[in-house]
Simulated assay, not measured.
Amino acid sequence: MEKYLEAGFLLKEIIIKEQHNCKTTGFWYKKSIQYNFFLIAHEYLFIFRKPNL
């Protein structure tokens, strides 16, 4: 996000998408611990617009 702001884009909106109906299986839980990553609970979508030139 910061790279786009530094390039002159303007942040219009931030959308947070929450994950529903996801089940953590034992397989993915063990892998997340083994390889040190988080299981996704939500995602961000940044909406930018070009500045008026």
Rank of each mutant, 00 (worst) to 15 (best):
M1C: 10
M1Y: 13
E2A: 09
E2Y: 14
E2M: 09
Y4E: 10
L5D: 09
E6F: 15
E6C: 09
E6L: 13
A7N: 12
G8Q: 06
G8L: 01
F9D: 08
L10F: 07
L10Q: 11
L10M: 10
L11C: 09
L11E: 12
L11M: 13
E13N: 14
I14Y: 02
I14M: 09
I15A: 09
I15M: 10
I15C: 11
I16H: 11
H20M: 11
N21H: 06
C22Y: 11
K23A: 01
K23F: 05
T24N: 01
T24R: 00
T24L: 02
T24W: 01
T24V: 08
T25P: 02
T25A: 09
G26M: 04
F27N: 01
W28S: 02
W28I: 12
W28E: 14
K31N: 01
K31S: 03
K31M: 00
K31C: 00
K31Y: 07
S32T: 03
Q34P: 04
N36H: 10
N36M: 04
N36K: 06
F37W: 12
F38S: 00
L39I: 08
I40W: 00
I40R: 09
H42N: 09
E43G: 04
E43A: 05
L45W: 05
L45P: 01
L45Q: 11
F46M: 02
F46C: 07
I47T: 04
F48M: 03
R49G: 03
P51H: 07
N52F: 15
L53S: 14
